[in-house]
């Protein structure tokens, strides 16, 4: 079967006069974990809910496993969803929660419970079936929510900011668990987050959204290294956005010249340079250290240059550059991206 797990074709979602999702198209392969990333109000959660069927598109077509589900309610689709608040039913025990789907779809109660216990065991929740959700820890509750979402072998597993209720220290572990689980069951998963670090860590591909539109789709490395717009460059990681112009295959800003072969001349252009790609090698570009910040794992320097201020980071050394020092720096040929706009 070659059809995509999920496909959006020119999907629009309006609420009254507000357009939450503005004509987006993309597709997700089977077994892939795709993240919707963007600031709040960018339409990422709405897109997730459009997949779930909790919202129906105003225009366009949503396909799951090749089938047009645009007018089909959530209950008539085969999706699993892990909610931000977990949404465990407080009046049902853990096993009742997990077996809810198979039972409500008219399955045999006994078989549903057996399947539920099996999943609970796989997720390391043995012996907790009879408890109420309120008697579990936050991490356990989250795993119950995941168990409940995958028990019916959904076409797609949806995560709505699943880590926002997990405290900061646990996040790294929980997100790794989610990733392992998705790989173990070879699930197609869609994950919504506003945390770019989280997105880079768990995703096969990331859909960066802004104001209801897709800004860029790509693997974490592609997005980080070749952002196509100011927005993406700025949103993912730290970026120095340097304004200049392109002339004869060269980007120029102050005393900075970068080779941008093949690019037509442009009176205004922007390049994005990641702070850690700036090399302190006594290169041709002049810079003056304005401030040095110690961040434990590295130093961060704020530099003054002929094309504006620049943020650079450098490994820890015993004697950092002190403010006022004049240095020469280089931006390596693969250390920048010329943005499209």
């Amino acid at each position: 079967m070659t059809e995509k797990a999920i496909e959006f074709a020119d999907v629009v979602k309006r609420y009254g006069t507000v357009t939450a999702v503005d004509r987006i198209s993309f597709s997700i392969e089977r077994g892939e974990l795709v993240t919707f990333l963007g600031p709040s109000g960018c339409g990422k959660t709405t897109s997730l809910r459009l997949i779930a069927g909790l919202e129906l598109p105003s225009e366009g077509v949503v396909r799951i496993a090749g089938e047009d589900v645009s007018t089909r309610a959530a209950s008539e689709r085969n999706v699993g969803m892990v909610f931000q608040s977990y949404a465990l039913f407080p009046h049902m025990s853990v096993i009742e929660n997990v077996a809810y789907g198979p039972t409500i779809r008219g399955g045999d109660k006994k078989a549903a419970a057996d399947r539920g216990y099996e999943i609970l065991a796989m997720l390391g929740l043995e012996g907790l079936g009879k408890r109420l959700p309120s008697e579990l820890s936050g991490g356990q509750q989250q795993r119950v929510a995941v168990a409940r979402a995958i028990v019916q072998q959904p076409d797609v597993l949806l995560f709505d900011e699943p880590l926002s209720n997990v405290d900061a220290k646990l996040r790294r572990r929980v997100r790794q668990e989610i990733r392992d689980l998705q790989r173990r069951f070879n699930l197609t998963a869609v994950y919504v987050t506003h945390d770019q670090e989280e997105a880079l860590a768990v995703s096969d591909r990331i859909v960066v959204m802004n104001q209801g539109r897709i800004a860029q789709i790509g693997t974490p490395a592609e997005l980080y290294n070749q952002p196509n717009s100011r927005f993406v460059a700025d949103f993912i990681g730290d970026a120095n956005l340097i304004e200049g112009h392109v002339e004869g295959g060269r980007f120029k800003a102050g005393d900075l010249t970068l080779a941008v072969d093949g690019s037509p001349d442009r009176p205004k252009a922007t390049v994005s340079v990641r702070p850690e790609r700036i090399v302190f090698d006594g290169g041709a570009v002049r810079a003056k250290v304005r401030d040095a910040t110690y961040l434990g794992s590295r130093y961060e320097y704020s530099l003054e240059t002929s094309f504006g201020s620049l943020l650079a980071s450098a490994p820890i050394v015993s004697t950092p550059l002190s403010p006022g020092t004049e240095v020469g720096i280089t931006v390596p040929p693969d250390g920048f991206t010329l943005l499209k706009n």
Partner: peptide
């Protein structure tokens, strides 16, 4: 919404 995604009708 959780209930609906698990296949329960309204």
């Amino acid at each position: 919404e959780a209930s609906q995604t698990m296949g329960a009708s309204g």
